[in-house]
Design a protein around this nucleic acid. Structure first.
Lengths: 374, 374
DNA sequence: TTGTAAGCGTTATCAT
DNA sequence: ATGATAACGCTTACAA
């Protein structure tokens, strides 16, 4: 690292007044030119203005424009967790839509901190953004009140927030969880664990977990007499924010994997393929799936997939590499739609809160097949 | 998706004038209160102001403040590619530093599009950000000129840009590439391929590639007589932006893997462990490593690591899962330092362009060990 | 077709 | 200790 002094001062940027003077006219004409009101400008004047702008390298100050106009084309994008691939993908859709609609997203990353979420929301408000897209932490937060209070247009992504009415767009969680569960059931798995982060507070997790249980129950009912031993469905909470709790939960899962289908092991021989002997683990999202995969690999070695079948909602880049079946979310569309909804609201569309549920796509890979790879 | 009409109009936000009226005083006092000039406010007035602000839920308009003050605490953060985990990690450092320094980063994602980079840079300029942190695409871009022209303070991250003088902070690429290469050499690998995206334009890639070659050459020189057959170092360009070219390059790599150390295969038996028979592939970054891993898995099956030893700069989340040796970049620090540098420049520190090179950390995993796992 | 002047919500200058 | 008043850079009636 080196540093020696030098000299150069940033020259003050040209203002509309400078341009007016340079072009020998008034500010009004410049403003008209900037706003494309060409029909009211003589070609001669227009040319002079154009030249002046060019000469001064003039660029209108958006802040000043926004102040006067009362709108600045800024929208806030509040993100719970950028390390989750889901978030980045949604963001791509958001950016594309913003681009198309002439909006500029202010991206704020709460990094799973409630305090950050609060701070950023306040900041956005202070910058007078015209609306916000919120991928909330999910906690019932007083700080989100102004958002819902009609004070500022908002669209929720992925998660609803208790006591807050707003448009929401995200995965059709019920359908997705059911899709995954049925896939495992169809694959002949008898012992299925649904692993999810603490879900009381987070609507999407809650819905997925509920759908999992419902589907298992429905299946059990339909096949009550067909099979001697019923399938087993368990929900396991994995609190990734707490290392101790995480270890605890993983240990519970280990016991199941070590002795699959314990109470009812007898009926396993009747199965059509080897999957009845393997425990299936359904991860509620990618962070959970990753944690599980890392754990299994550490415990059972590189060939862990012969012991456990992993399925996950979300389709992270390593899923293909590891050969894990997933349910891909239409992330790009989610982001795109969210902006469209917000845009409508900003433009004054008045409706009650809308729900936009997009379907997930099952991507079958080796993990849930009959002959697991190593 | 449902939608039925409702009614509620956003009430205009309170302004400083509203507060002044509510508190029965002038705007000046409110401004003073906002800026913490408590010493010039009687406790009595201060209390009235506080109450008025509370009652009106007043929040000062940053845009107006910025317009008047000439500074808005906004900085631009231009990102080449958010899908690269590296970028997200750097961002975390940036956010932390901004938080600490009271700055608000406007995050712009160019998504590897030169046109986007241009557009965003122009946009940032138009919003009068006080500075920019640029993780440039690397292309020699005329649009970056205003940045370097002293017109606006800037700090480069990871990559320098031709013909643009500015502070730059990033990985010590030379040292990192040398570290990786030596690790492979020490591991007994004789046939090493360095795989990198087109590197003419991107300084970090260029440096890594050069360091790789230099290290290989140095090694060859030092051990010229010791071993009968010298080690072989190859550089392979993988253009991920072009599917056809990518396939072509991968095919070339396949030939090498299928017949490792072709010209000089005789000396392989002399090796101390099995690694002389395996081809080692050194990926210049995570995106390359992922593409390679996916390819190898598709071609050689789940046990591909018995055929190829993969090493990569960057430490993506799947590296641990797959057991791949990596060189981790101090991403968080890179982001943090970048903001600190920028802040100094914004505050008027005048120096010539500084280089801040941070060291990478070698994380040894199974991939480069003597007995590869499956 | 062009220009003047009054704001937008702040802060800064200068009185009182 | 307090408060008019003039900017900041722009848009927009309203004139001319």
């Amino acid at each position: 690292m080196s540093a020696t002094p030098t000299s150069q001062r940033a020259p003050r940027r040209a203002t509309i007044t400078d341009v007016a003077r340079e072009a020998g006219t008034g500010k009004t004409s410049i403003s008209r030119y900037l706003n494309g009101e060409m029909s009211v400008l003589s070609p001669e004047l227009r040319a002079r203005i154009e030249a002046a702008i060019e000469r001064l390298d003039y660029q209108p100050n958006q802040m000043a424009r926004g102040l006067k106009r009362g709108r600045n084309r800024l929208i806030g994008m509040l993100l719970a967790d950028l390390t989750n691939p889901y978030t980045v993908e949604v963001l791509q859709g958001v950016e594309a839509a913003c681009h198309a609609l002439g909006l500029m997203p202010l991206i704020c990353h709460a990094a799973n901190e409630v305090e950050m979420e609060r701070r950023y929301l306040q900041l956005l408000t202070t910058y007078r953004v015209e609306g916000v897209i919120v991928n909330a932490l999910g906690v019932r937060e007083e700080s989100l009140r102004p958002v819902g209070g009609g004070s500022i247009p908002a669209v929720l992504v992925d998660r609803s927030v208790e006591g807050l009415v707003a448009d929401i767009v995200g995965l059709d969680n019920r359908a997705a969880a059911e899709l995954g569960t049925r896939h495992l059931l169809d694959g002949g798995f008898r012992d299925i664990w649904f692993v999810v982060q603490p879900f009381e507070q987070v609507s999407s997790r809650r819905l997925r977990e509920a759908a999992f249980r419902d589907t298992m129950r429905a299946h059990a009912g339909a096949h009550a007499d067909a099979h001697a031993g019923a399938v087993q469905g368990h929900t396991l909470v994995l609190n990734l924010a707490d290392a101790v709790q995480t270890e605890h939960s993983l240990a519970e899962l280990d016991r199941a994997v070590d002795a699959p289908g314990e109470p009812g092991a007898a009926n396993r021989l009747a199965s059509t393929n080897g999957n009845a002997a393997r425990v299936a683990v359904f991860a509620a999202n990618a962070p959970v799936a990753l944690r599980l995969a890392l754990h299994f690999k550490a415990r059972y070695g590189a060939a862990w997939q012969t012991r456990v079948a992993l399925l996950s909602i979300d389709d992270p880049e390593w899923a293909e590499l590891t050969g894990i079946t997933t349910i891909r979310q239409p992330t790009y569309d989610i982001g795109y739609r969210a902006v469209e909804f917000l845009h409508e609201r900003i433009e004054g569309v008045q409706t009650t809160a809308r729900d936009c549920l997009l379907p997930g796509e099952l991507i079958v890979r080796a993990s849930t097949g009959g002959r697991p790879n190593g």
